[in-house]
Amino acid sequence: MSQRSRAARRLKTLWDDLRAGDPQAVHAARKLTRRAQAELRVADAGRKTERAWRGLRRAAAPLRDHDVAGGHLRDALAELGVPEDTLAYFDRTWAERRAALLARTDWPGRPPAFDLHSGWKGRARRLIEQDGRKLLRDGEATLAGSDPEQWHAWRKRLKRYRYTLNLLGEVPPVVVGTLEALGRLQDAEVVLGLLHADPDLLRYERDRLIAREEAARQEARARVRELFPALAEQLSRPAEQDGEKAGV
């Protein structure tokens, strides 16, 4: 028996707000593309559908990164006690930057849709086990170093594992917690990239903002390393246990 993709159904309800650039819709759509990625791995929906979802994810990425970075920067400015006129200037210029990004965004013409066909649960379980072994092996090497690209690549694979697990039931807290720490790490990398790329961006507070994000980066990495033993246990589990626990 086939069933319509949950990501596709949800995306359809967000479509108009997404194309208008609504921040909440952009955030939700970006998350849905990750769920769709997990669904597509078990759906055999074809290259055209896969390209459509990949294009949507890439279209939403600059806006979502802008919104996340802006949130962190504004929180940091408030913590640093900058004057109200500085906050107002930041709000105005950041909104202008977002408007320019939105004007350049090339959204797909319509929301992509696909179905999951009979046997997809078995395929999901096999992928969970394969992903778990690879994440465990690569995680030990990643966490031993500090290469931002390596950490980011491992995070993306863990997100895919998380959404594949979610197709069959609940996601274990250790997976969620690890991804939250990795998300803060990636946000810090994005903010630091912006600050280093543009010396004029918030130049009077720039040094303190860089110090804040560097500290957040270190704290996030430490948290991931702290969680890794429990995560490793989860990654080693047979996928059937997760399915049976969820009543699949």
Results as ranks from 00 to 15, higher is better:
residue 86 T to N: 08
residue 62 P to E: 07
residue 53 W to S: 01
residue 45 A to Q: 00
residue 59 A to E: 12
residue 35 R to L: 13
residue 211 A to H: 06
residue 43 A to F: 01
residue 230 A to F: 00
residue 44 D to T: 00
residue 90 F to T: 11
residue 21 G to Y: 11
residue 198 D to P: 12
residue 129 E to N: 06
residue 72 H to P: 02
residue 211 A to K: 08
residue 36 A to Q: 05
residue 134 K to L: 12
residue 228 F to M: 11
residue 70 G to C: 09
residue 150 Q to L: 08
residue 115 D to H: 02
residue 31 K to R: 15
residue 93 T to L: 13
residue 14 L to R: 01
residue 167 L to M: 08
residue 229 P to V: 05
residue 141 A to K: 12
residue 8 A to Q: 03
residue 141 A to H: 01
residue 35 R to M: 06
residue 109 G to I: 07
residue 93 T to W: 10
residue 131 D to C: 05
residue 43 A to C: 02
residue 145 G to S: 05
residue 124 A to E: 13
residue 224 V to T: 09
residue 75 D to Y: 08
residue 138 D to W: 08
residue 189 E to I: 14
residue 231 L to E: 07
residue 84 E to K: 13
residue 190 V to F: 13
residue 31 K to Y: 06
residue 10 R to T: 12
residue 203 R to T: 00
residue 10 R to G: 03
residue 60 A to Q: 07
residue 102 L to T: 10
residue 56 L to K: 03
residue 58 R to W: 02
residue 16 D to L: 14
residue 3 Q to S: 13
residue 20 A to T: 07
residue 166 N to R: 15
residue 91 D to A: 14
residue 72 H to C: 05
residue 223 R to N: 06
residue 215 A to I: 05
residue 240 E to T: 12
residue 121 K to V: 13
residue 96 E to Y: 04
residue 4 R to M: 02
residue 3 Q to A: 12
residue 72 H to Q: 11
residue 242 D to E: 14
residue 183 G to S: 14
residue 136 L to Y: 03
residue 86 T to E: 15
residue 227 L to R: 15
residue 26 V to I: 11
residue 18 L to I: 05
residue 59 A to K: 04
residue 199 P to W: 06
residue 203 R to A: 11
residue 224 V to W: 02
residue 68 V to G: 10
residue 188 A to C: 07
residue 147 D to R: 01
residue 134 K to R: 09
residue 246 A to W: 13
residue 219 E to H: 14
residue 109 G to V: 07
residue 136 L to I: 00
residue 53 W to K: 01
residue 43 A to H: 02
residue 79 E to R: 14
residue 175 V to P: 02
residue 247 G to R: 14
residue 207 D to K: 09
residue 89 Y to E: 15
residue 193 G to I: 07
